[in-house]
Design a binder for these strands. Sequence first.
DNA 1: CTGATACTTAAGTTAATGCTTAACTATCAG
DNA 2: CTGATAGTTAAGCATTAACTTAAGTATCAG
Lengths: 136, 136
Amino acid sequence: MLNYQAATPAPLDLAFQALADPTRRVMVERLSQGPASVSELARPLDMTLSAVVQHLAVLEASGLVRSQKVGRVRTCRIEPQMFTAAERWLGERRASWERRFDRLGAFLAETASEEIATEPATSPAAPGARRQRKKT
Amino acid sequence: MLNYQAATPAPLDLAFQALADPTRRVMVERLSQGPASVSELARPLDMTLSAVVQHLAVLEASGLVRSQKVGRVRTCRIEPQMFTAAERWLGERRASWERRFDRLGAFLAETASEEIATEPATSPAAPGARRQRKKT
DNA sequence: CTGATACTTAAGTTAATGCTTAACTATCAG
DNA sequence: CTGATAGTTAAGCATTAACTTAAGTATCAG
């Protein structure tokens, strides 16, 4: 996974990556109903405790989940902030194309009785010679 | 990546996985402002066209993006439905813990002058002997 | 002290990812 | 027809991810 962009993965990288796994989503679903211990999280899952601990590590690294150990049991809980961040990113994209649709609608309504030439807004795309390897 | 749960990955797996990559998010950000050709998507990205095409394939497989080819240019655009699905999943989790917070608040307000014993709701956790390998 | 519980940590294995080259296939302009 | 555009496809390679075993380390109950 050579991602030549940032040395440190962005928070959203980690969040979406964490949510991409069905096992981890099950864990998150459980936790969104209230705190739970590691074994409680593991119970419905068909894998070793060890694997669950590793999934938990991914969730914690992503900032979606937090946990603390009291005695010998580690209690895990949801960390709402990162969820909000992910939700916000999605919402912003949606807002973007919805705004565009609104403009398009307004434009169509406005020019309904004027002209008819309305290309689907494909920009000219300058030539821009580019060799195959373009490593900065 | 041995994911012993489903032979077919769930839609949300693909969607979140697709969004987990910063390059693909840049592509999505571009597309949420309007349709674009493959080369247009590639222009700001520091990688070969080939790599961009592969990222696009991931986005299409996830259902977040759709594309069609006219002549020699492929025009890509956002597919809103899958975004909504992802946003909804996040929203439902949030609703879950917010509901819980409300109940907790109500409970605290109600018993404010009665008793004081209020454990953080850690369930009893039955013994349930389990060997290390528990492959169904 | 002893044994169960509840994790932890470290390897090791396998498959999936994110790239790169390189070679090809259609358009479209002139 | 020719050359440039725009994309496609197939290998190949290094890294990461998702597990497994196996062998710990702290609690806590009795």
